[in-house]
Simulated assay, not measured.
Amino acid sequence: MIGRILPKRLGGDESGATLTEFAFVAPILCLMVMGIFDMAHTQYTRALINGSMQKAGRDLTLESAGSQEANIDARVIAQIKTVAPNNATVTLEKLSHFDFADIGEEEEYSDDNGDGICNNNEPFVDANGNGQWDADRGETGVGGARDAVLYTAVVKYDRLFPMYGLAGMSQDVELRASTVLRNQPYDQQDRTVVTGNCS
């Protein structure tokens, strides 16, 4: 008799259904909440990096910027580190170009064999003076008078929240922000042209 009553009572018992339902919903809810916080932190960090780069760009265009370059770089890194995690690495890259039109352009070369690659001793214009053909003709550093400078900050860190794998995301975050500036015309621009041959 008890064997017949027990299944009926268990079948109608709904106490604990909420706990079971929450067990299904909880992982998705946690993933959504952590994802929102992760995206918000990333966007805030990106905005701060952009703001830091714009301020640094204005500071670097001043005539006295040459002597203040290390201080400006330190201020950019310090500002980024206020929101980036402790394990973040901040790298600053500066490439100077003769003009704005040169930014992101490869060094000119004569493609004698028509293969689209600088090779087989083909002549090229060594715009950055490093003795080899480069896909970006920029010269490392802030350059000289009237040069256009591409100033970039690269920030890398591990994600703050551990559920990135469930969302199919990488653990590593890499944010980049750039600004372009022109140095003050306190001197004549160097117009020296050097040529070389591709290997």
Rank of each mutant, 00 (worst) to 15 (best):
A26I: 14
Y44H: 14
L60Y: 06
F124Q: 11
R58A: 11
K81D: 07
I72G: 04
L95C: 06
I77F: 01
D38N: 02
F100K: 13
N87I: 12
I28M: 14
E69P: 03
F98T: 08
A26G: 06
N121P: 05
H97C: 02
D126A: 06
G66E: 11
N113Q: 09
Q68M: 12
T45E: 06
G51H: 00
S52M: 08
A23Q: 08
N121D: 14
M32S: 07
T89E: 00
A84R: 01
D102G: 03
R75Y: 05
N120W: 13
I72R: 03
A40C: 10
I80K: 04
A70W: 02
V125L: 13
S52R: 09
A65E: 07
I103H: 10
F124P: 07
M39G: 10
G66Y: 13
I36Q: 09
A40V: 14
T91C: 08
R58P: 01
L48D: 07
I36C: 12
I36E: 02
F100S: 13
L19F: 09
E108K: 13
L31D: 02
L95Y: 12
M32I: 14
T61F: 05
E122D: 12
G129E: 12
V33R: 02
T61S: 06
N50D: 15
H41Q: 09
T18W: 06
F100N: 14
V76Q: 00
N128G: 05
E63R: 08
D59I: 04
N121V: 11
A56Y: 00
A127H: 06
N71G: 12
F24S: 05
L62A: 09
G129H: 14
T42S: 10
C30R: 05
I103N: 09
A101S: 12
G12Q: 15
D102Q: 00
N50F: 02
I77W: 01
Q43A: 14
L95I: 04
I80P: 05
Y44C: 12
F37V: 07
D115G: 06
I77T: 15
F24D: 01
F100V: 04
A26Y: 03
V25G: 01
A84G: 03
A88L: 03
R75F: 04
T91D: 15
G57P: 05
T82H: 10
A78H: 11
Y44V: 15
L29P: 01
